[in-house]
Write a protein that binds this DNA or RNA. Structure first.
Length: 494
RNA sequence: CGCGGGGUGGAGCAGUCUGGUGGCUCGUCAGGCUCAUAACCUGAAGGUCGGAGGUUCAAAUCCUCCCCCCGCAACCA
């Protein structure tokens, strides 16, 4: 079975920050879960490199635009490595394959494209059009003066797709998530769609429009088309549609409209299948303040990983806040999660159980002759993944992590109740049953956290001599399993 | 009257449709237990459920009005 998941492609006008890491890790978690669940996955990410802002940034630092793009794009590639991203493709919009794809895509849209005049308030200093509602006292937010400007532009007949889009939202209630965002999009479309200006002639750092001198594509089509470029478009249109049908786009809430309105309209026009779902994540504040360069509180993912660890960060981002809502980042909160959830709950559970087995030779003698209490925990361990599956299906990553931690807590409580340190002296057969259940539970937990914390899961798998390659393994039982030397998962001393 | 979401112990939320001991997670305090990087158990403190009025034997929940916060409101990746 096929599955496709994407991150937005990141605009290279600034350095990567925690928000980029957040979206990427979210998509990565989904991709890893699906792979463990037996799907053939295509997971793509990349960089969006065209547009006047990039050209101007390059100019500002006295760099050739291509060279500048290479350097900036590499920073995002470095981030992908730093956060242990399992992407199948890292796409750059400046690549030749994308130029070909975007231009072919444009041609498919041509029946809905016409030439007209684009007009708006233009700030010469910023070299960009300023939206009406952002103009204060006749000036751009930057304080630059604006003037009414008109230029020739190609337009896409978005207005023709209003009803079709509404029908689609109606027919596929899961097309947009979370629900609150879905309402916003629907009300936006209902309020009436205007045609979309999709070309620019004032700059040339972009993909040229086929057979048209001087016009380059404006971001909408160039950037959005990355998703099908990555799937091999324009080759193999059949495969592209098939993957799109099972595709989840993870996006930031600020770009939801492009993905939930423009993109599906383009795809309808081009005759390509629409994605299954577009999910908008929220934003992080830092210590309750909006992150901004001027305030200097932008969270640097490289710094956090260096100081607190990668899996720790990956865990925190999805346990602290419900995916889809805004959240607050603080080192204090991160430290607490690491101490209480990771070291005390999970780390200690693994330690107390496996160390106990180590103490008596590192060999588990299985006993599946369970008491009622043992049977309950065993069942919960066995169906952990199926409970998570329905949550991951809805991108409820936070809920899925809670599901895992419920099992962690249950296992800790079970250990307290069963008192294996006493059973070892009184009832070895009972002890073996208790340890068997605990080991099954820990193994399930390792699978449960694997998409979120791949390195930590790997450590646990190694302790227990488990392959850890597929959820199918959970069906296999332990037989006289030999365990290897262990060490604390999340040591408290640094 | 542009559309939508929300205001519940220190924090974050559930409960509101289908009125009737106000609950969950975390945090705070006291005690118990202890194999382990400890967890768990028991008990305690802490809320006029945004405000006012109304319906009712009974309102967080139904009705009316008001206040406040947050999204969206098209060229912002």
């Amino acid at each position: 079975m096929n599955f496709c998941v994407t991150t937005p492609i990141y605009y290279i006008n600034g350095d990567p920050h925690i928000g980029h890491a957040y979206a990427s890790i979210a998509a990565d978690i989904i991709a890893r879960f699906k792979r463990l669940d037996g799907y053939t996955v295509h997971f793509s990410t990349g960089t969006d490199e065209h547009g006047v802002k990039v050209a101007r940034s390059a100019e500002n630092v006295g760099m050739d635009t291509h060279h500048f793009s290479n350097i900036m794009s590499q920073k995002f590639r470095d981030l992908s490595r730093a956060i242990n991203l399992s992407e199948d493709d890292f796409i750059r919009t400046t690549e030749e394959r994308h130029k070909k794809s975007a231009q072919t895509f444009w041609k498919l849209l041509e029946k809905d494209i016409y030439k007209s005049i684009y007009s708006g308030w233009y700030s010469a200093r910023d070299e960009e059009y300023v939206p009406e509602n952002e103009i204060v006292d006749g000036k751009a937010p930057s304080g630059a003066p604006v003037e009414w400007m008109e230029e020739e532009s190609y337009f896409f007949k978005l207005s023709a797709y209003q009803d079709k889009l509404l029908e689609h939202y109606e027919k596929y209630p899961d097309f947009i998530g979370p629900n609150a965002r879905r309402n916003e999009v629907i009300s936006f479309v209902k309020s009436g769609l205007k045609d979309l200006s999709i070309s620019r002639s004032k700059f040339n750092w972009g993909i040229p429009i086929p057979d048209s001198d001087g016009h380059v594509m404006y971001v909408w089509i160039d950037a959005l088309a990355n998703y099908i470029t990555s799937l091999g478009f324009p080759e193999n249109k059949e495969y592209v549609s098939q993957m799109m049908e099972n595709c989840v786009h993870v996006v930031g809430k600020e770009i939801l409209r492009f993905h939930a309105v423009y993109w599906p309209a383009f795809l309808m026009s081009a005759g390509i299948t629409l994605p299954k779902r577009v999910f908008a994540h929220g934003w992080w504040t830092c210590d309750k303040e909006k992150m901004s360069k001027s305030v200097g509180n932008v969270v640097d993912p490289f710094y956090i990983i260096q100081n607190y660890g990668l899996d720790q960060l990956r865990y925190f981002l999805f346990r602290e806040v419900r995916f889809g809502e805004d959240g607050d980042f603080s080192e204090e909160a991160l430290k607490n999660r690491i101490l209480y959830d990771l070291a005390n709950d999970l780390g200690n559970l693994v330690q107390r159980v496996l160390a106990f087995i180590q103490k008596f030779g590192g060999h588990l003698t299985v006993n599946y002759d369970f008491s009622d209490q043992e049977r309950i925990l065993f069942a919960n361990a066995k169906n952990l993944v199926s409970r998570m599956r329905s949550q991951i299906e809805k991108q409820d990553l936070h809920g899925a992590l809670n599901t895992v931690w419920n099992l962690v807590s249950e296992s800790n409580k079970f250990t307290n109740d069963m008192r294996p340190w006493e059973l070892v002296k009184t009832d070895v057969s009972r002890l073996n049953a208790v340890l068997t259940v605990l080991c099954e539970s820990i193994r399930s937990i390792a699978f449960g956290i694997a998409p979120f914390m791949p390195d930590t899961a790997r450590k646990i798998f190694n302790f227990m001599n488990v392959e850890g390659k597929s959820f199918d393994e959970i069906e296999n039982n332990f037989i006289d399993q030999k365990f290897v030397e262990l060490s604390p998962l999340f040591p408290k001393e640094k």
